[in-house]
Simulated scan of single mutants.
Amino acid sequence: MVGLAQRLSRYRAPAANEPDPRRVRHMRLHFYRRVIECRDGLVCVSPYLHDESASSGSSTHRLRAALHRSLTGKPSAAVSVVAEPTESGMEADIDQLLELSRRLGVE
């Protein structure tokens, strides 16, 4: 009976306080994909960020104006960066995207 219990314990579901490694990995991949999708969206709208907007307001105002311009189909030749990270690495990128998201929610 002990042998059977040991064999069955290999197939048990994780306890409530014990994270399932597959689920954690899936959540990390989902989060990573979401960050990439946000960056891709900002890259797509970047041709609509005109240079004159850079001095006239925050990145949220520039982004809103660019989104409106994208509806008219009049991109500029220049490409601008929105929420550019100050450091390298995924954490810095995430921090900038979260800050931009917070500001967009407030304005």
Score class of each variant (00 low, 15 high):
10 R>Q: 14
14 P>K: 04
23 R>N: 03
63 L>C: 09
78 A>I: 00
3 G>F: 06
56 S>I: 02
21 P>A: 04
16 A>V: 07
40 D>L: 12
99 E>C: 07
4 L>Y: 07
32 Y>F: 11
16 A>C: 01
107 E>S: 07
18 E>A: 02
60 T>Q: 14
21 P>I: 04
14 P>L: 03
104 L>D: 01
82 V>K: 00
99 E>L: 14
43 V>T: 12
22 R>Y: 03
44 C>L: 15
1 M>W: 04
56 S>E: 15
87 E>G: 08
58 S>Y: 02
7 R>L: 14
79 V>G: 00
61 H>A: 13
7 R>K: 09
19 P>V: 12
66 A>P: 04
101 S>H: 11
24 V>Y: 03
35 V>T: 10
7 R>Q: 11
13 A>I: 06
2 V>L: 12
64 R>G: 00
72 T>S: 13
87 E>S: 15
97 L>Y: 07
98 L>M: 13
61 H>Q: 14
37 E>N: 09
86 T>K: 13
17 N>L: 06
90 M>T: 15
57 G>F: 09
25 R>I: 04
70 S>G: 04
42 L>P: 09
34 R>F: 06
77 A>P: 00
35 V>M: 14
61 H>D: 14
55 S>A: 14
45 V>W: 02
59 S>Y: 09
28 R>L: 14
11 Y>C: 02
95 D>C: 03
12 R>N: 04
89 G>D: 05
40 D>M: 08
84 E>C: 12
74 K>R: 13
85 P>W: 11
57 G>T: 08
44 C>V: 07
70 S>W: 01
2 V>R: 11
67 L>S: 00
15 A>L: 15
75 P>I: 03
37 E>V: 01
96 Q>D: 02
60 T>W: 11
52 E>N: 05
63 L>W: 05
4 L>K: 13
70 S>D: 00
68 H>W: 07
100 L>N: 06
68 H>L: 14
37 E>F: 01
33 R>K: 11
20 D>Q: 08
32 Y>T: 12
101 S>V: 00
3 G>I: 06
29 L>W: 08
3 G>Y: 08
107 E>T: 07
31 F>L: 09
48 Y>L: 01
77 A>H: 05
90 M>L: 15
23 R>Q: 15
43 V>S: 09
26 H>D: 08
34 R>Q: 12
27 M>S: 07
102 R>I: 06
64 R>M: 13
6 Q>I: 04
35 V>F: 02
58 S>G: 14
103 R>C: 05
101 S>E: 06
54 A>R: 10
77 A>N: 04
3 G>R: 13
1 M>C: 04
78 A>W: 01
93 D>M: 12
73 G>F: 06
76 S>L: 00
101 S>W: 03
15 A>Q: 08
50 H>A: 06
84 E>N: 11
48 Y>M: 08
69 R>K: 13
70 S>Q: 01
43 V>F: 06
5 A>I: 11
35 V>R: 03
67 L>H: 00
58 S>I: 04
70 S>T: 02
46 S>C: 11
106 V>G: 00
23 R>V: 15
105 G>T: 02
1 M>V: 05
